[in-house]
């Protein structure tokens, strides 16, 4: 038990330190740190609606965080979660528009499946290139983000465009596809789609703990050469890692499409895919850690949303400053060793 507490202590202190530093910087602007903190907390957790919005922001972050972690475990850096998520969301919407006759319990399942498939395909491409051609996944996944944005924009504007809308968004999915928000959170679009994040988190934990494929994938990430010498098909593990990573990221748009807007809106993501990198790092690539980190970042996202209104001088950009400082203080390994007094 004390072992668990000890392991939790460092990230907890790191988060506290990062927040304290960030609030200190914000306070230089003229508002008191206390006022900013209160505004933050109030906006993130102040009411059922506020908390619901925090959860709504957190759910995709769990998935993009898991996606990035999946790559990292195989020694690959998946920067492409943003694009994989976008295409997954588009695919979910496309199915919802294209097959309006599917009955209720099947319809959302079909959309989820389509989202996973689209994301997985988008992840498999850099995975395949890495495995067969040795192309660096960072460059490929970054570029694939731009391609994904282009593809999404084409389909949104020319194939599924909502006829009377001024916005770049598709028309609505059929009603049978919608997953209705819980009434508890008032108007916040938190639905059973939230559970999807938790199920996937549990699933990846099981995958790594119980399957040979998960073990091999991690072995490749831990020591590619030793894995190769041990007869593990390194390329296959890499392909598998990025395919799964893509599929998981592909699901991140589900709450938006099936519960919030009921359609695909271009630019719906405030950067979930990129924040997933931070979530994976802060969460130490573990399911529970990623869920906690996603909640934190979700709360920051929501907490800072109306900061301009609540304070005189601080804007919502504080969210990014706080995220950055939290990551910096978490990764300050030397500091923690010094505190533990193990080394001088």
């Amino acid at each position: 038990m004390s072992g668990i507490l000890k392991r939790l202590l460092q990230p907890f202190l790191a988060v506290a330190l990062g927040l304290a530093l960030g609030l200190g910087i914000a306070a230089l602007g003229g508002d008191s740190a206390w006022v900013i903190l209160k505004a933050l907390l109030n906006s993130a957790f102040g009411s059922r609606y506020d908390f619901g919005m925090t959860l709504f922001y957190s759910a995709p972050l769990v998935l993009t965080g898991l996606s990035v972690a999946m790559g990292l475990e195989a020694g690959l850096f998946n920067i492409g979660a943003e694009g994989q998520m976008g295409l997954g969301a588009l695919a979910a919407a496309a199915v919802g528009i294209g097959f309006p006759g599917v009955p209720w319990p099947l319809a959302p399942a079909l959309a989820v499946f389509a989202a996973f498939l689209a994301g997985a395909t988008w992840g498999a491409i850099p995975g395949w290139l890495r495995a067969k051609r040795g192309s660096h996944e960072v460059i490929i996944t970054i570029m694939m983000n731009f391609i994904a944005a282009g593809v999404a924009s084409y389909f949104t504007l020319y194939v599924f465009k909502a006829p009377h809308s001024q916005n770049s968004e598709t028309s609505s999915v059929a009603a049978a596809y919608l997953i209705h928000p819980f009434a508890f959170f008032m108007d916040a679009p938190v639905s059973a789609a939230l559970l999807l994040s938790l199920v996937i988190a549990g699933g990846t934990a099981l995958f790594f703990r119980r399957t040979v494929a998960g073990y091999e994938l991690r072995a490749v990430g831990a020591n590619e050469m030793a894995a190769r010498f041990a007869g593990i098909d390194v390329g296959r593990s890499q392909l598998l890692a990025l395919t799964f990573a893509g599929g998981i990221a592909g699901l991140a748009g589900i709450p938006e499409v099936l519960s919030a807007s009921g359609r695909f809106r271009m630019g719906f993501s405030p950067g979930y895919g990129f924040m997933g990198i931070a979530v994976a790092l802060l969460g130490r690539r573990r399911a529970m850690g990623i869920i906690a980190a996603a909640l934190l970042f979700g709360a920051l996202q929501k907490g800072t949303a109306y900061l301009e209104l609540d304070t005189q001088h601080v804007t919502r950009d504080l969210s990014q400053i706080l995220q950055a400082l939290v990551i910096l203080s978490v990764s300050a390994d030397g500091l923690w060793r010094w505190l533990k007094n193990d080394r001088l």
């Binding site: 991690r218 072995a219 831990a222 020591n223 050469m225 030793a226 010498f229």
Partner: peptide, 8 residues
């Protein structure tokens, strides 16, 4: 390099 997963 060839035999162990050092950090596992």
């Amino acid at each position: 390099r060839e035999g162990l997963l050092l950090d596992r």
